[in-house]
Design a protein around this nucleic acid. Structure first.
Lengths: 118, 118
DNA sequence: GGTTACGCTGACGTCAACGTCAAGGACGGT
DNA sequence: ACCGTCCTTGACGTTGACGTCAGCGTAACC
């Protein structure tokens, strides 16, 4: 069975983003579609990447940070220094996520209080 | 005992933001310091507000959204329409927070996987 | 063979969230 | 009297994340 592929328009519709956004993400190296002539051809890999990007975006990360994060998924951690760096980045992200979770908890508690006042 | 107060510099140092940021937040109505002459004088209320703003910021909300949220804490929900609107806003925020929590869970699971690969 | 639909690349515009001067007023210390 | 420190208000600059428009190519359809 041949590998499935999508046009830029397909992808934009599927994830509710604009064509410009997808092109922008490619310019930043977040997506690396195949080219047939000048036309972009997207594969499953690109869909997964886009999902990662959008999730990062919802979590408030900059596209720059997201780039570093998604590249962690692909990188073969060749050298030992690279590996160390990678694990360090993971630790940093975990800390951010943990603080976010705490912020969410606090905010929800606050919302509870506001709601109770009604 | 007199109410405690702080200068703009105190507040900036305490929350690790710039003076410009604090002035910007005042311009947007997020902070409403007292004035002694032209000089801003901050009180406990402003500290609490600033904490809310920074939490909202860490969660990726725009200052505009944050303004609406923090004002929910103060508003006396006068009319019934206002109240309805307020509760609706709370519901919307809760949904966003819930999705963020899911995103965080997913991202942490992904980080686990990346880490395990090492 | 003209129109419509889709694709591409520049390149300039926009908006939020500040950064960064410039120019000045109000203090305390020496 | 003058310095250093803190405060103020404009006002223009910057960065990120796209929006938007111009100008063009191509493939399908009628």
């Amino acid at each position: 069975m041949a590998e499935q592929s999508w046009t830029i328009r397909d992808l934009a519709a599927a994830y509710d983003v604009t064509l410009r956004t997808i092109r922008h993400y490619e310019a930043l190296g977040l997506l690396t579609p195949e080219r047939r002539g000048t036309t972009r051809v997207f594969h499953q890999r690109d869909r997964i990447r886009l999902e990662l990007v959008l999730r990062g975006r919802r979590l408030g990360f900059s596209l720059d940070e997201i780039a570093r994060i998604v590249n962690m998924y692909d990188d073969q951690p060749g050298e030992a220094g690279q590996l160390e760096y990678l694990l360090d980045q993971i630790r940093v992200r975990r800390e951010e996520l943990a603080r976010m979770r705490a912020d969410i908890d606090q905010t929800e508690a606050d919302l509870d209080a506001v709601e109770a006042r009604c």
